[in-house]
Structures are given as structure tokens and as C-alpha cells.
Design a protein around this nucleic acid. Structure first.
Length: 588
RNA sequence: GGCAUAGUAGCUCAGCUGGUUAGAGCACACGGUUCAUACCCGUGCGGUCGGUGGUUCGAAUCCACCCUAUGCCA
């Protein structure tokens, strides 16, 4: 690994263990894993934190209802989350639990620092308390008759002593932060939070232990329990070694990105930075609020009964692994916006993109290699593989002339619409150049290296949909077209071995590149491709190694070794043809 | 009720700061091919861009109001 690159620290929201993990939880974790894998490919030291939020009355009550000690209950639930993340093949570096001992220490310490700064004070709080809920009600929990929506009883006005955090004190600093470039992502969320700022008040940060006992006690006041957000948000610094591992903390803090759902942006963009300001800790560089995923057009919720876990989907569609789920979720919508997971769309998209376009391409190419070259990557006579990606002046001149010939964008678009420049038999040598040199003859408007850079840029912007669209539309599909145009089976019949070698090599080489591009999203498919291409593949420190070397983005320009023995093992991904069962779990 | 985001072909979505006949993929129809996972390649079908008004020579794109969905807040 190249270690001179700057470290990258990304976190997910920690999940509340009161409910089992479902597709919504998975969405965020997958996106974060994609980013983590992408940055590892870039050679940056990455730290990826996820975990569970385990304190609070609800959890204590649920545990009690099952006759369990809260700790025993949360032990079980956090294992369930870990199992799910294993199923999704997540590469997190630590799974933090708010019940972890070091987290207790960090929260207590953070509290004391904020208290020493005189940002925490005690005051009385009056709220509408519902005995049925064992909690204070928010306005939205109360119906028009002034009753609790759930228990249909009027709540009691209860007054209790709480500690408060001087959030309002940080209004101006927060405004400056929020307005700064790139702190809140996507950009359109900025307005929403800035508007909230004006009505910012101090927040309650503790509850009497009588009401909430399952939590971290306030230092020096055992009668109070630290409230959920101070506890939960602090996980991000605990997970970076705050006060426990100085070298880790210095390496990875401040976090590069807190990946969260749009519902909790307020806490991450206002409360959390203010707490850090108070404690004198550096602020995270960005907070990314992603959208929600619906399931078959319905909100994912217990009451609707459409809670589906990734494991459920793997079983239902008889998937070999979760890659198709990862792929679908990352392409179903523009990241940041809400999306909809539809099961028959899932099936058809996975079949079309992964099985047919990519899978079949890999399969047909390797089959031909097996058949025509005894399973060895074709050797290009008289070509030094080290020079394959060196610019070819003749070709560059040709391309330049082509671009210059286009008077404006309109004409270029027209050419695009008229169809790609198909290689005739005569133009074939140029086309081969295109496949493994700097430019791609199929798409004259976009040289190959630009396309590859474009994919990288899209990943950097968390624009996963476009990163993959570009890969499939501009890099994979053209290879299928190329194969048809070149008709290697005809070349084989005619005995034109040299040309056959060039065509097939070009195809295999492009497949190799594509495997790198899709690796962050579908790591196991990528791994399978590398294995079939004949590489010795293993995993080390959450990185893939090919022939002993860690896979890196730069490998895009390190071509497939001539003569490498491929390892054909059958279809990359079988088509999904299983019957679709209703999302709600209803039978067919 | 306030703030924010979204509402575009049967389905999932692109369309940046307004400009010639609104774009992909999937699905569907027809043709071609056989190396391949009933696959791949080609052609075609398909939309009065949520509604109503307005600004403009010109709006899916800007403004106002309304309807619907989602999140936060009250």
C-alpha cells in the first residue's frame, strides 16, 4: 500500500437495536463500504466505523418484555447486525457499541470537558409525559384531542430537573460552519439546516435515572443519565481512538465523512459540531445525508409489515452473495435522493446488467480463450506488453483531427446519435489501438483515459449511479459490440490467429479493467473475474491482492500478462429466475 | 401550519445556470448472429415533462398558487 496518501475516515450512523436490521439500514452501510473500498483502491489508509446504539428506555423495555437483562439483549441484537453486515461483505474496521467500556469513558470525559467550559447547566423541564409510553411526547405524538396517539390518554404535565447544553451559544459559529463549502452534502440540504438555525434553543442532555436508567450516568450525579444524542454522537470519536489511542486519533480525526440518513441531519449538523466546539475537538469535514429506500413503493416499517433483511433477499432469489443487492441499491436512484427497491425491477436489472451484459461477456470471452488458445491469454507477437498504454502519436493525431473536424457540440451529438463509429474490417487495427491505448474508437467523443477518470470522479462525488452507468454503457456494452463486429469465431474458422489474438486480448484486457471499476460496488464479482482471468487472488487487510500485489486503481494501466492461464469456472452470475414472493412475506 | 426535497415514456431514472424534432436502461415488437448464461448485435414502438396561471422571441428547465409523496420542525 502507498502510505504517503492522506488517511480517510468514514462513519455510518449507529443503528438502534430496538429493531432488526433491514434493507434501509443496509443501504447506508453498503454505500459507506463502497466509499471505503474505493479509497483503499486509491491507496489511502481508510478507517470505516459502524456499530450499534444500545441505550435508552425503549431498549430496556424491550429487553424486559423478553425477560432479558438489557446487556444480554443488546449483545444478541448487535450480533444480529454484525451477521447482516457479514452477509453484505462490509469491510468495517471497528464495530462500535455504545455499551463498550471505552465509549463510556469517552462520553464521561466529553461531558466533563463541556461542563468545565460551563456549557452544561441544570434546569427544570416541563413536558407532556405519557405513562403508557414511559416517555415525553412530542407535538406530533399528540392528537387533536390532546391525547397520546398510541394510548389515547391525556399525558401528564411533568416537571423534572435536567441538564441542558448551551447549544444556542454556538449559533454564530454553527452558521459559519454550515455555510462553508462542502460541510453539508448534498448541497440542497444546506438551506433546510440553515433555516433551523434561527430557532435554535438549548437542548436537554440528561434524564433523571428514575425515568431512564439504561444509559451512561452523568459524572458526579448518579441521579441523572446522559441523554441519547450526547451518548450516540460521541461514538465517532471513540471509534477513532479519542483519549485511548493517540496515534490512531491523530491519524484519522477529524472524520472525512459522517454518512447518515436525512432524518438525523439536524443532530449531526448542529448538535454534534456544537458539542465538539465546546470540547475543543476538531470538527468533521462533512456530513452526508442520504435518502430513504422504499420497498415495493411502501415505506419500510414494521406496521406495514414489509421489513425485509438482506439475508431474506439472498435466500429468496437464491443469490450466491449480496453483490446483486449492492449493485441494485447503488444504481436504483441518484445517491442522496429517495429510491425504491422493487423486486421485479431488481430481478430484471440484475439479469440485464450483471448476468447478461457483464456476466455473459466474461463467459463468452473466456470460452473463446479456452477454445481458441487452450486457455492461455493470447500473446501478441512482437508487442511489448509494457508499452500497451503508451500514447501512440499516430493515433493521437488521428483523434485530434477528428475532434477538430467537429464544428460544435451539436454536430458531435449528431454523430453520437447516428451511431458509434463501427470498425470495419479495414479499420480494425485502429480499433485495437483504441481498446488498449489511450482512446476508444467506439466512442470518439470520449477517449478511454477520460472515461476511466470520469468513473473515478463519479465515485468521489458519491455518484454511484453514474459511475456504474458509465462503466456499463461506455465500457462494457462497447465490448459486446466489438466482439460482434470482429466475429472472432469467423477469424478462427479462417485461421487468422494473429488477428484473433489481438481481438481476444483486447476484450480480456477491457474486462480486467472493468473488474477494477466495479470492485467497490461488487467486490465478489470482481474477484471472480480476476480469478477466471487467471490471477491468484487473496484478501489481505480488507484489500484484494492479485498475484500477491494489492489491487489498486492504478492497475487500470497494467495490462493482463501475456500467456497467463485462465481459470474458466462457468457463469459469473446465473440469471435470477426464481418466482417472486410478495415483499410483505405473503405467499406468492 | 412552516422549511426542504421530489412528481418526466408501462417500470426505474437522466436532463447543469431556459434555446432547434425531451434522453437512457428495462419491458415490448421485428430483423441478424451463434463464441456465450433463451445470450449478444441492429431497428422500431412508446411521453401534451403532476395541475393551473405568469415572465420570455422561446420553459421540463424561472416565478406564483394548487394537488400528491417523503424528511425535519411547530
Amino acid at each position: 500500500m502507498i502510505t504517503h496518501q492522506s488517511p480517510y475516515y468514514i462513519t455510518t450512523a449507529i443503528d438502534y437495536v430496538n429493531a432488526a436490521p433491514h434493507l434501509g439500514h443496509a443501504y447506508e452501510k453498503i454505500a459507506t463500504d463502497v466509499i471505503a473500498r474505493f479509497y483503499r483502491l486509491q491507496g489511502r489508509p481508510v478507517r470505516f466505523l459502524t456499530g450499534t446504539d444500545e441505550h435508552g428506555t425503549k431498549v430496556a423495555k424491550t429487553a424486559e418484555s423478553k425477560g432479558l437483562d438489557p446487556k444480554v439483549y443488546t449483545d444478541r441484537m448487535s450480533e444480529q447486525f454484525k451477521d447482516t453486515w457479514t452477509c453484505l461483505n462490509l469491510t468495517y474496521d471497528r464495530f462500535i457499541r455504545t455499551t463498550d467500556p471505552d465509549h463510556y469513558e469517552v462520553v464521561a470525559s466529553l461531558w466533563k470537558t463541556m461542563q468545565a467550559k460551563e456549557d452544561i447547566y441544570k434546569a427544570s423541564y416541563t413536558g407532556q409525559y405519557c405513562p403508557g409510553c414511559e416517555n415525553f411526547l412530542l407535538e406530533r405524538d399528540i392528537n387533536e384531542a390532546g391525547e397520546c396517539q398510541i394510548h389515547l390518554k391525556k399525558p401528564d404535565a411533568v416537571e423534572e430537573e435536567n441538564y441542558f447544553f448551551k447549544l444556542s451559544h454556538y449559533k454564530d459559529d454553527l452558521r459559519t460552519l454550515l455555510k462553508s463549502e462542502g460541510f453539508i452534502k448534498p448541497e440542497f440540504r444546506k438551506t433546510e439546516i440553515l433555516n433551523m438555525l434561527e430557532e435554535l434553543e438549548d437542548i436537554s442532555v440528561s434524564r433523571p435515572t428514575d425515568s431512564v436508567s439504561w444509559g451512561i450516568p452523568v459524572p458526579g450525579d448518579p441521579g441523572q443519565t446522559i441523554y441519547v444524542w450526547v451518548d450516540a454522537l460521541s461514538n465517532y470519536i471513540t471509534g477513532a481512538g479519542y483519549q485511548h489511542d493517540d496515534s490512531l486519533f491523530q491519524t484519522f480525526w477529524p472524520a472525512d465523512c459522517h454518512m447518515i440518513g436525512k432524518d438525523i441531519l439536524r443532530f449531526h449538523a448542529l448538535y454534534w459540531p456544537a458539542m465538539l466546539m465546546s470540547a475543543g475537538v476538531e470538527l468533521p469535514k462533512s456530513v452526508y445525508a442520504h435518502g430513504f429506500i422504499n420497498l415495493n413503493d411502501a415505506k419500510i416499517s414494521k406496521s406495514i409489515g414489509n421489513v425485509v433483511s438482506p439475508q431474506d433477499l439472498v435466500n429468496r432469489f437464491e443469490l450466491q452473495n449480496a453483490d446483486p443487492i449492492r449493485y441494485y441499491l447503488m444504481t436504483v436512484t441518484t445517491f442522496g435522493q429517495d429510491g425504491n427497491f422493487t423486486e421485479d425491477d431488481f430481478k430484471s436489472r440484475v439479469n440485464a446488467d450483471l448476468a447478461n451484459n457483464l456476466g455473459n461477456l466474461v463467459n463468452r470471452s473466456l470460452n473463446m480463450t479456452q477454445k481458441y488458445f487452450d486457455g492461455l491469454v493470447p500473446v501478441l507477437a512482437g508487442v511489448d506488453s509494457g508499452t500497451l498504454y503508451q500514447p501512440d502519436p499516430t493515433y493521437l493525431a488521428e483523434m485530434t483531427a477528428y475532434y477538430t473536424g467537429l464544428s460544435d457540440g451539436h454536430e458531435e451529438k449528431k454523430k453520437w446519435k447516428d451511431g458509434y463509429v463501427f470498425p470495419s474490417a479495414e479499420s480494425e487495427p485502429r480499433f485495437l489501438n483504441a481498446l488498449f491505448r489511450n482512446s476508444d474508437g467506439y466512442l470518439p467523443s470520449q477517449p478511454l483515459d477520460q472515461l476511466l477518470d470520469d468513473v473515478r470522479f463519479k465515485y468521489q462525488c458519491f455518484d454511484f449511479e453514474f459511475a456504474l452507468f458509465t462503466t456499463f454503457f461506455h465500457l462494457i456494452n462497447p465490448v459486446n459490440q466489438f466482439i460482434d463486429a470482429m466475429a472472432p469465431w469467423t477469424l478462427a474458422k479462417e485461421g487468422d490467429t494473429e488477428k484473433l489474438a489481438r481481438v481476444l486480448y483486447s476484450v480480456l484486457e477491457r474486462i480486467r479493467q472493468v473488474a477494477i471499476l466495479i470492485y467497490p460496488v461488487t467486490p465478489l464479482l470482481a474477484q471472480n473475474i480476476f480469478e477466471q482471468l487467471g490471477y491468484t487472488v487473496s484478501e489481505k487487510n480488507k484489500e484484494l491482492t492479485l498475484n500477491g500485489q494489492p489491487l489498486q486503481w492504478d492497475n487500470l494501466y497494467e495490462p493482463l500478462p501475456f500467456g497467463q492461464a485462465i481459470h474458466l469456472t462457468g457463469p459469473l452470475l446465473p440469471r435470477l429466475d426464481s418466482e417472486i414472493v410478495g415483499a410483505s412475506g405473503k405467499k406468492k
